[in-house]
Design a protein around this nucleic acid. Sequence first.
RNA 1: GGGCCCGUAGCUUAACUUGGAUAUAGCAGCAGACUUCUAAUCUGCGGGUUGGGGGUUCAAAUCCCUUCGGGCCCA
Length: 634
Amino acid sequence: MAVQDSTKNLMVSFFEDMRKRLGLPTADEVKRYFKKQIQGHEGDFAFTLALRESKKNGITPNEAAENIKKNLAESPFIKEIKIVNGYVNCWFNYNFLVNELIKLVNEDYGKSDFGKKERVMIEHTSVNPNKALHIGHVRNSALGDSLFRLLKFVGYDVTVTNYIDDTGAQVADNIVGTKFLGFPESREGVKLDHYLGDEVYVKVNEMYKSEPSLMAKRSEVLKAIEHGNNEIAEYAKNMVSNVLIAQLQTLYRLKIHYNLINYESHILAYKFWDTAFKQLQGLGAIKFEKEGEKKGCWVFLLDAMKSSGDDKILVRSDGTVVYAGKDIAYAMWKHGLLKSDFRYKVFAKQEDGEKLWTTTLDAADENHPTFNAVKQSVNVIDIRQSYEQNVVSEAIKKLGEGKDLRYIHYGYEVVALSKNTAQKLGIKDIGNKEVFHMSGRKGVYINADDFLDKLHKLLYEETRNKNKTLNDKECHEIAEKLAVSTLRYEMVRTDPKNMIVFDIDRALKMEEKSAAYLNYTYARISSILKKVSTEDLSLKVSLIPELNEHEKNLISEILRFPEVVESAAKTLDLAIIANYVSDFALAFNSFYVKTPVLKAEKEQLPFRLWLVNSCKNVLENATILLGIIPVDRM
RNA sequence: GGGCCCGUAGCUUAACUUGGAUAUAGCAGCAGACUUCUAAUCUGCGGGUUGGGGGUUCAAAUCCCUUCGGGCCCA
């Protein structure tokens, strides 16, 4: 059977073949009964279909399995079938798999047109512009950027935005500090976001406690920012921009880039809410309550909200708009539902060569790309805002009726600190608690830059020790790549629903499945491939030798990579890729120590080289999705 | 008071969407493997009442109910 050219995914062909032979309606039905073989049982995979069929048809499981065996016998994918207690245990036909994979695996292996160029907007990071990023923010950014890489990889047209709340109290606090309390505006040799966040912000908040009159100053500053066109507003604009640039330095260090910066103040200035409000009124989507406890309020009528007791209030009886109101207007903009758009100009050129744009109140650069009006928006925002985000999501669903608009709240649990780490940060009131939440205001957090520096230092020493022939600069480059890889991998390998309890000592020991392990695997692969000529690499695999168990293992891992990517893209679940790549590296290292490549028998060499090169393609593509920077030596 | 999430080995975790054989790995522990393509590695061993209880089922970590522990949101 020839694999269709339209798919680069051999697993798809496999499931389709199985579907036909098993007489099932869909490939998903096949997957339901498909089990990768666990250890201690014969075969590469098994079907559990017979266990169900037997009951339905009144025959024994083994009889049902015999029927299935007959149907599958002719499949080119399968070499052997054995029945045990109703399980249909199958062995892959590796010769066939390898022959097909040889046609499919290249630098782009795993890429697909799954997304069909559909436009998607991902918003992530969105850190208040008054402080440095801490490791909790990095979870957000690492998830967001990996989602960007993943969706782009499977053929979506993705725009990435970073939303800046430049009108909030946090910015005002810093201004109270530098403008009225005599804090210097910066400190020589200290990154601005560190200085303002670590010193000014924390100290000003301490001073509020002993001097409540200062709160009036803060209100004053907030009002001035909101009104605009005054000295304080200009000052704030400047400060926000400078802190943002400092934050972006950290993010660029993490290899994270954006297409657009959105400012909250611009949403206000462009009066998006007023436009949205009129549109909502016109559509009859909101209602003015004339009596009851919500008298005088404008409420949104959402089905999903009814179960939780009430319709969502959007405008309070005193005329003020709730937070979700602005969020809905902004989400309407994202999905092209708002009859209004920003003006844009270029903010900076990033190190990846791409322009970073920003919304602006000034004259526009008319050559800007289209940013909004997407079908799907992925909003990486921590799980504490689930309720509000649900409201927004429901609102977009309702307003975009029939347009298949998807506003996705990509919620993730926060990064908290372990007891030990909290103690190290000088928290006195430890009590019985095991988990401590980070707080910018209280100064309880681990800055991303600081942690990266610590990782870098440790990894540099290790690299220095192990690579006598490398110079210092090269060692530092490797250490930096490993540090970034380690931090980012830690943030995406866990299920986003689980809280990460960060322990600084444990993190620096890197005892768990780490990026260093994956990078080491990649370095081993590179080291083999560096030693062969391009002619050798392109040798035709005319003979596929008898494969050992390690090789078979790697083949089946290579086989499933596109499937893993696609299911990660479907579910936006990056941990699937992280688990896959961890299994993959394990399989490669087992292969590596047992199976010579460069010193293989002559007739085995072309196949082994192809295999190693294929592993490189898979490992490189998979790790890059996770934010790992592959190193060819370490 | 109302709602959401988490609980699997000492630690970190997979499988839960769609129920299937002996529950997946890593770290730590123990015992081994470098004159060999990088030992930041590999091989083997020990370690589990899947928080507890009940139910559904031929079959439950997985589905349902209940309870305990931890975290969060709303009021």
